[in-house]
Structures are given as structure tokens and as C-alpha cells.
Computed example of a mutant assay.
Amino acid sequence: MSTISNTEEGLRYLDEFRDPALARQLLETLHDQCDRLSQQRQKPLQIMEVCGGHTHSIFRYGLHDLLPDSIELVHGPGCPVCVLPKGVIDDCLRIATAPDTILASFGDALRVPGAKKSLLQARAEGADVRVVYSPLDALNLARQHPDKTVVFFALGFETTLPATALALQQARASSVDNFLVYSNHITILATIRAILQSPDMRLDGFLGPGHACMIIGTEVFRFVPERFGIPFVVAGFEPLDILQSITMIVNQHLNRAPALENQYTRVVRDHGNAVALQAITEVFEVRESFEWRGLGAIDQSGLRLRAAYRAFDAEHCFDLGQQKIPDPSHCQCGEVLKGVLKPSQCKLYSNQCTPEQPQGALMVSSEGACAAYYNYGVPRDQCA
């Protein structure tokens, strides 16, 4: 019979939960579910948490030590910084080193390695690269420096798309003509489709991305259980949210009834945020194909500015074409992103690749799976 671990590793974080008693109750339920499920199947359930925020909550609160052995968590590609290809970074380096130009970027992206250097290294060499916390910060920079061209390095899934769209709408309405956006926004929907269609696919459930679903809603993921027969539960980010979402997935397997469910009902609605979606639709359109680091080209997974916003499009103004620069052959970020390998199984993990000297983007970002493993002390060659 499966029981909650009595080890210090398994229980030391429970008192940090918002409701430790509820956590214990959920864990007892989950262990009981897995006992019953073991009568139906021999292999562990492989559940992918799509978002990097989930990965960090799992390790911060020790959930990986509390779960039954029959549940294996797989870490997905839900960190937008982690999937930036080297060609994009090199394009940003071209922008940053252009005369009278300021490149504004989120902080995580500065340390992602390009073909020869990172944006952080370029800034140390004199390039005007500035950290901002929102696209509106970048727009304000353009207003403060009318003699400079300010380019916002726009990245992120649907979570950050509305902010970029609203900044562009403001720039257009107020005729700020020295503000540009280099759009590298990507869509989680196309990513999950690509994972499901991969020949390496071996997943039994998804913890859906709560923040992205706050914008796009839950209904867009109904194809996952209906077409692929895999449970999909939109999950919040507190440890209790994650535990409850896992029990919902296991319950679907017990009942042999894969479905789309929303655990994060206090934030996420079926059809998302209508105002945000309207702004996104006005400003952005889908690209035919977009290159992902470690995953290659994924159809309809990237977004670019519509023709009406071409005057604000850095891709057009700087004549950028995303270069295809492969990662080193020994870097295994692609396998980790698809859930084929755990970070600790990568040949470079904690050896040649650390947060201080990252070889791959998964070790750079604060939401990267490799950074989570490293920062929470997971040793090499051991799975969570």
C-alpha cells in the first residue's frame, strides 16, 4: 500500500502550505487513488506541467518528494526565455549595437547565449541595453529619449501578449515614432499540439498553464482529451493547486474518462479575457512558422505585427531574418523541453552547464527547468 513519505525530505515543507491539513488530506487521497490505479496499469503516470512557474512551485515546496512513485512529473517548454533560439539573440545584438538605438528587454533574456555572446556581455562592451519590467516601460523610454530609437524585445506566451499589444496601441494613438517592437511572442496552444504530435510523445496528462489560460481561456484545449484521449487540467500555482490538479488527472484515469477541467477557477474562465483577446487580435497575426530553441520550427506558433503596425515593427525596420544557429551537439535542451529527458539526465547538467555559466537557455531563465533542478539541489543523473 502506498503511504505518504515519513522522511524529512517528504514532509519538511508541509508547514509552509497555506493549509497543511488540506495538503495532507489531498496527499492521502492521491496515494489511495494511485493504489487503485496500480491495479489497472503497471507504468507510472507521466504528467507534464507546462509552465515553468509550476516547476518551481513543485521544487520549492517539495512536492516531488511527496508524490507516489507511480506519478512522474515531466517538465514542459513553458518558459518563453528558454526556447529563444540563438538567431534571435544575434538579431537583438544587431539592434543593440546600431547607432542611436536602445534595446529594452526583460532581465532573463539578457543572459541567454547567442552564437558568440549574450546581451549582458554586449552591454558590458558598451551597447545600450536596458532592463524593463513591462513594454510600457520601454514606451516611456522612447518618450524620454526622442533622439533615440527604442526597441522593445517582446517575448512570452499569451500571458504577456496583451501588455505588448496595449503598448503598441498607445504608441500609435500618441504618435510615438521612435518606438519599435521586435516580436518573438509565441503561443502555448501550438506548442502543446507539437508535443502531442511528436513521435516521442508518452504523456498521460497535462497541468495546464494557469497564467496563459487567464488570457485565452480553457476551451481552446478541449482537443487534448477529445482528440488525443489525454487529461488536461488547468492548474493554479500554489502547492495546494498543483496537488489538487494532479488528483483530478489521476481520477480521470481511474474513471477512464479523459476530460478538460479547470482547477484554477478563481482566476481562469472558459473563454478567457475578451478585452485582452481583442487587443491581441488587433495588433498581432500568426506566423506560418517559427523557430524554437531545441524544438525546431513549429507551424503557427509565433506572432508578428499586423500590417497596420508595420511602422513599429523592428523586424521590418532593421531587415531582420531569424538566423538558424544550432545549439552545440552535446546540449540536450531539446530533449528536456519535449519531456524526453529530465534536466538531471543531461550530460552537461551541473557540470559544464550552471546558472553562472549556462550552455543552454533552460539554465538561464528563472523559470527554466534546469535552473529549478540546480537551485533546489537535484544532483546529476537522478530524476525527480
Rank of each mutant, 00 (worst) to 15 (best):
A276E: 12
A279T: 06
G302E: 09
D241P: 03
S289V: 08
M248V: 08
G321F: 09
E288K: 11
I242V: 15
A297R: 07
G321Q: 14
H253R: 11
G272V: 02
S289T: 10
L295A: 02
V286N: 10
A297H: 11
P239C: 04
A308T: 01
A274Q: 09
A297Y: 13
A235M: 00
V250N: 13
A314Q: 00
D241F: 06
H253G: 08
Q323L: 13
S245L: 06
M248N: 01
S245D: 06
N255I: 09
A276S: 15
L240Q: 09
P258V: 14
E288S: 14
A257T: 06
D241Y: 03
L295V: 08
F312S: 05
R287L: 12
V234I: 09
D319A: 14
A276G: 12
H316A: 13
Y264E: 01
F318Y: 15
I246C: 07
E291Y: 15
P328V: 03
P326K: 06
A276H: 05
L303F: 01
S289I: 11
M248Q: 09
D327N: 07
Q300G: 03
Q300S: 14
Q322G: 13
L305H: 05
G296D: 08
E238H: 07
L260W: 03
A311P: 02
D327C: 06
L254T: 12
F237E: 00
L243E: 05
T247G: 04
T281R: 14
H271I: 05
D313I: 01
L254A: 14
Q252H: 08
D313C: 12
I280Y: 11
A257E: 15
E285V: 14
T265L: 09
